[in-house]
């Protein structure tokens, strides 16, 4: 029972962070119908930003979030104005492979500069502490804080888009770019802004994850796939959808571990021979496949 509660709370917490990971992707897709394969690489850069900033300044890793956000915002804007803008003229094939190229460049630059060793953040006030939630379910404080901060960031972005002038302009461009242009909203500016926001949110998510996730420059692809799954499940372009779907995907990643525990308890050795937890993320890929087939519009989707 505790294990079930533990699995659920772990899934819930990580799911909240996943939602923030996917937020930027869904905004960019909503505004301009382009998918960014380098999304996970932005996250990876957020992780290294948190690590290096806290190492260099001795700051607590959690305090590096603003730095990560600024880095991500600038990175997003640079990528858009310097590169992605030119892809939009070409066919879809070019857009797809173009952001793939960006992914390869970012990943391998990181490899060049940061090396391929596994990194983790060892310091910080929250590291290695855990807290009892209820019924003996203990969760690491880092995860709890990351989840809480993710939700805060998520709500802030949601408010930014729904309550501010520029946010509404962004929304208008997403709904009907041509119509928005007639109202004097520059599509170009909105695209740039969307990439900035997209970059900032995902690097912040990366900085949060860095507190409990060991990482290498290769970590990006996994998160790109996770983000794609969430966006597909929640509906391409839907912000509330991304939140709900993020949590669902969080649960999906916890299922294999829970299953292994059950087989361990049941004493069925043959079932435990191949631990299901090796398939922790296979479930995510499968989920993407299934969602696209059953309901391509996702749970809250308005773009098809």
């Amino acid at each position: 029972m505790e294990i079930l509660a533990g699995s659920i709370s772990a899934g819930l917490l990580i799911g909240m962070v996943f939602a923030l990971v996917a937020l930027g992707l869904t905004i960019v897709f909503g505004v301009m119908d382009i998918v960014n394969f380098a999304h996970g690489e932005f996250l990876m850069i957020g992780m290294y930003t948190a690590l290096l900033t806290s190492q260099a300044t001795g700051m607590d890793p959690l305090l590096t979030l603003p730095v990560a956000g600024v880095v991500g915002y600038l990175l997003g804007i640079v990528c858009y104005t310097g590169f992605v803008k030119y892809l939009l003229r070409g066919p879809m094939v070019a857009q797809l492979l173009g952001t793939f190229g960006l992914m390869l460049v970012l990943r391998n630059l990181a490899l060049l500069f940061f090396g391929s060793e596994d990194r983790t953040i060892h310091k910080g006030i929250l590291v290695n502490r855990s807290i009892e939630l209820f019924m003996g379910v203990r969760v690491p404080v880092t995860k709890l804080a990351a989840a809480a901060l993710s939700v805060i960031a998520f709500v802030l972005i949601w408010l930014l888009i729904n309550r501010t002038r520029i946010g509404k302009a962004l929304l208008a461009t997403a709904l009907n770019a041509q119509g928005a242009r007639y109202m004097g909203i520059s599509t170009e500016r909105m695209n740039t802004f969307a990439w900035g926001i997209g970059g900032a949110t995902v690097t912040i998510a990366g900085a949060l994850l860095a507190n409990f996730w060991s990482f290498t420059p290769y970590v990006g692809l996994l998160f790109t796939m996770i983000a794609f799954t969430i966006v597909a499940l929640g509906g391409f372009g839907s912000i509330p959808g991304a939140f709900v779907a993020g949590i669902l995907v969080g649960f999906i990643t916890e299922i294999p571990g829970f299953w292994d525990y059950l087989t361990y308890l049941s004493g069925q050795r043959w079932m435990a021979k191949v631990p299901m937890s090796s398939f922790k993320y296979t479930g995510v890929y499968l989920a993407y496949f299934m969602i696209m087939l059953i309901r391509p519009r996702g749970l809250f989707g308005w773009k098809t």
């Binding site: 070409g90 070019a94 173009g98 190229g101 960006l102 990943r107």
Partner: peptide, 10 residues
């Protein structure tokens, strides 16, 4: 490679 892909696609 990545650079070439980026150039070609743009």
């Amino acid at each position: 490679y990545g650079g070439i892909i980026m150039l070609i696609s743009a």
